[in-house]
Design a protein around this nucleic acid. Structure first.
Length: 459
RNA sequence: GGCGGCGUGGCCGAGUGGUUAGGCAGAGGCCUGCAAAGCCUUGUACCCCGGUUCGAAUCCGGGCGCCGCCUCCA
């Protein structure tokens, strides 16, 4: 069974399952008020890899990831741009899915929107009030964290230090600085939902508890997100579940940060902060490779150099796929459907089962690439294909597709290639080289193959 | 202030008490008409100072440097 780092215990632990063979996971999604950034890209890739690997391992996975479509940032933007919150949310949710599709991140099985669950949230908040663990103030409803058993578990810090660092707010009705809003009373002009405790909107931490419990049920297996969510967001989700007397997530996993050349993130330095920009200017697969190349809990450095480096690594994979005419499966691959080098697949799984050691798993794949190329050079087509299929299959297990597909080549280009073959046959190398130059100028990379001039697009 | 992480060869980035990570880039060679792709070979690496040990980059102590969280930012 897969062993994964658990934030609550701060140890790598077996992922125990509520239902045998089935994994239920909830990953906190975006608040859609702006374009997705690199951090969004990383966490979605990390958990996409986890999900795909679980599927590869034969589990039936239910993956839930929410869209927060109402919050202060959305309200501010809507106000600034003179349009509705729903319009803002819709626009940026569109950008979100565009980016996810480009990254090859599988769509969640369920994508709850906060605004669809306000009724359930109101019910939940009422229950917390009834239980005496929440209280109303003039500006909303708060959870009384001091009444929650084990508050601070995920933060991993003594409550005193959390308290010491808590922001001093103008609201002195809060009984503890750590208490957080379950419900925010609407100010004039703000969108609101009616509730017994006054019109307003839900606080951020409430939606994920309500939606995860409603869609996955009590005691679901895994809750994930970026490192920054562990406190206060996940801490506060957990606090509500505990206060409700409900069994919440059994395993907490958080991924590390994205660094962009220290703190400088200006576009003038050539750094990417918007995922949308990155995806437009580089092969989207390069970001997945970059993410896989370091451990999911380690910080990663994203620069134009590291992206370019990953793109060249990709070229090596593509090149093998091209030599062997292999293509990646479209649907998530299962181990039982992969025929290949059994020993290597076994090693791969052992690495992945040990807290997702993707860097070593990649090393294994690149070793396969070398072996397959060697076999090809030695004329052992059968062995080369077996090794190549293993490599492509393991890439698929990580969600990394290879690009061997033959491109549509227009008639003019084809004519140039044929003319070059003819010139080469006639040993007219000056003419052949001139034709190659022409093709290069058109953006093609010319590679000689046993079948004559081979063409591929320059990346 | 409290808590936590990190410092590996030109770059990125794993790992480990003694044995080749891997990728990219570089050098040499093979293949090729020449290239491209591929293959082979190659690289004095582990922040500093002590200590433990037969042996430490890996363990312990100290130092230096960098970073994050403690603020509804993934």
């Amino acid at each position: 069974m897969l062993r994964l780092h658990d934030t609550a215990s701060r140890e790598v632990q077996p992922l125990t399952l509520r239902d045998e063979g089935k994994v239920s996971m909830y990953v906190c999604g975006p608040t859609v008020y702006d374009l997705p950034h690199l951090g969004h890209g990383r966490f979605t890739l990390v958990f996409d890899v986890l999900r795909r690997y679980l599927i590869f391992s034969g589990f039936e996975v239910t993956y839930v990831s929410n869209i927060t479509d109402i919050d202060d940032n959305i309200i501010r933007r809507a106000e600034r741009e003179g349009r509705s919150e729903a319009e803002v949310a819709k626009e940026f949710e569109g950008h979100w899915w565009d980016a996810m599709d480009a990254l090859g991140v599988l769509r969640p099985d369920h994508t709850p929107h906060a605004t669809e669950f306000v009724g359930s949230m109101i019910t939940t908040i009422s229950q917390l009030l009834e239980r005496g663990v929440a209280y109303a103030t003039s500006d909303g409803v708060y959870l009384e964290t001091t009444k929650v058993e084990g508050y601070g578990l995920l933060a991993g810090q003594p409550l005193d230090s959390l308290r010491a660092g808590a922001r001093v707010e103008e609201n002195d009705e809060k009984r503890s600085p750590l208490d957080f809003a379950l419900w925010k009373a609407a100010k004039p002009g703000e969108p609101l939902w009616d509730a017994p405790f006054g019109g307003g909107r839900p606080g951020w931490h409430t939606e994920c508890v309500v939606m995860s419990l409603e869609l996955l049920g009590e005691g679901f297996d895994l809750h994930g997100g970026g490192l920054d969510l562990k406190f206060p967001h996940h801490e506060n989700e957990r606090a509500q579940a505990v206060a409700l007397g409900k069994d919440f997530a059994h395993h907490w996993t958080h991924n590390g940060w994205v660094m962009v050349e220290g703190e400088k993130m200006s576009k003038s330095l050539g750094n990417f902060t918007s995922l949308t920009d990155l995806l437009a200017s580089a092969d989207p697969r390069s970001y997945r490779l970059l993410v896989l190349r370091s451990h999911y809990r380690a910080p990663i450095e994203v620069t134009t150099e590291t992206i370019a480096d990953a793109e060249r690594g990709l070229a090596r994979l593509d090149s093998l796929a091209r030599r062997l005419h292999l293509t990646s499966p479209v649907a998530p691959l299962r181990r039982s459907d992969l025929n290949g080098d059994a020993a290597v697949i076994e090693s791969f799984c052992a690495l992945m089962d040990d807290d997702l050691q993707t860097p070593q798993a990649l090393a294994l794949i690149f070793d396969l690439v070398s072996s397959a190329n060697t076999a090809l050079d030695e004329g052992d087509q059968e062995r080369a294909t077996m090794l190549g299929e293993t490599a492509v299959g393991l890439c698929a297990a990580l969600g990394l597709s290879v690009k061997a597909a033959h491109l549509e080549i227009d008639a003019d280009t084809l004519a140039l290639a044929e003319a070059r073959d003819k010139a080469r046959d006639e040993k007219d190398f000056a003419a052949a080289d001139a034709l190659r130059d022409q093709l290069t100028a058109l953006g093609w990379v010319v590679e000689d193959t046993p079948d004559g001039t081979g063409l591929r697009r320059e990346e």
